[in-house]
Design a protein around this nucleic acid. Structure first.
Length: 291
DNA sequence: TCGCAGGCCGAAA
DNA sequence: TTTCGGCCTGCG
């Protein structure tokens, strides 16, 4: 892969296993929006970025080499060999073979743990457009104005201290619904205890999940998502309705409970469970499997 | 209309 | 330990 900077863009030539649609629509993030030219614009780490792919070239627009090296290389998990991951998964069974071909360009973003914590609390029993709207509202009300890109204003996700200024009513006014009390309680707990969820990255997967489940509004599925998408715990397997459907379609009985499906998958896919989950989720949702 | 959506909480079995 | 009802909100 050749990397160079040109006109406020960083260009990645000859890149493999990278597709914006697959990355931004496989269920791991909520702040990236598709543009008219099929590129995606979003906010991460307090920066606005636009991502576009043409063949085996990826354009990271509105950035420079310094930010690429300090931020985006890790954010897009570019140090990991996804070709190898897919090869191992393909060897496991025909369903993963198909699913990893279908979502060939998926990468698990290394997102901020705190943002994942609040985002996935909002995701419970909710729809994706509503989740996106609520996160957008919280950012606009309590985050910082970052700037404008293509005529649209962007705001950073609020820090724990910034969000702690919001009352429960303020939070509900951002369209969070009944999850307002969970967000308030979780934010308060973090600020009052001077906790930093980034330290959870250093914990074992088991310890990490145990800590996450202490927060109000975080159950098994939400905890798994935060651990996988925000804490680099790749040996977890979040079971949402789509994953449940695809697992029941291909692997297990119709009546198997969620915790048992999770245990089955972690046992079967091991250290690559999180990656398998992403390929299976994207495959199931795009094709409407089990509906 | 009313069920339901990328679940969780608290109570009850 | 596992099961169940209720829940903001907006869409089909």
């Amino acid at each position: 892969m050749k990397v160079y900077e040109k006109n406020n863009s960083v260009i990645l030539e000859g890149i493999t296993d990278f597709d914006p649609k697959h990355i931004f629509e496989c269920g791991q993030c909520f702040r990236w929006h598709k543009q008219e030219d099929d590129s995606y614009t979003g906010v991460a780490k307090g920066k606005i970025l636009n991502v576009k792919r043409e063949g085996d070239t990826v354009y990271l627009n509105n950035t420079n080499l310094e930010d690429f090296n300090n931020i985006w290389f890790d954010y897009f998990d570019l140090g990991r060999d996804y070709t190898e991951i897919k090869n191992i998964l393909k060897g496991m069974d025909e369903y993963l073979d198909k699913a990893s071909d279908f979502g060939w360009g998926i990468r698990i973003l290394q997102q901020d743990g705190w943002e994942m914590l609040i985002s996935f609390i909002i995701s419970s029993n909710n729809r994706i457009p509503m989740i996106q709207k609520a996160i957008e509202n919280l950012s606009k009300k309590f985050g910082k104005y970052i700037g404008e890109y293509n005529g649209k204003e962007y705001y950073s996700f609020p820090t724990p201290e910034e969000l702690n200024k919001a009352s429960q009513e303020d939070i509900r006014a951002c369209q969070t619904g009944f999850r307002d009390k969970y967000i308030k309680s979780t934010t308060e707990s973090i600020v009052n205890n001077k906790d930093d969820v980034r330290r959870y990255i250093n914990l074992s997967t088991e310890e990490c999940l145990k800590e996450l489940l202490k927060f109000n509004g975080v159950g098994p599925k939400v905890g798994d998502c935060i651990a996988l998408f925000g804490m680099r715990k790749y040996d977890t397997f979040p079971v949402d309705v789509w994953v449940k459907r695809v697992m029941q379609e291909f692997y297990v009985n119709e009546d198997m409970s969620l915790p048992k499906i999770r245990a089955y998958a972690i046992d079967k896919f091991g250290d690559l469970a999180g990656f398998a989950q992403q390929y299976l989720f994207y495959y199931a949702r795009e094709l409407g499997i089990g509906r």
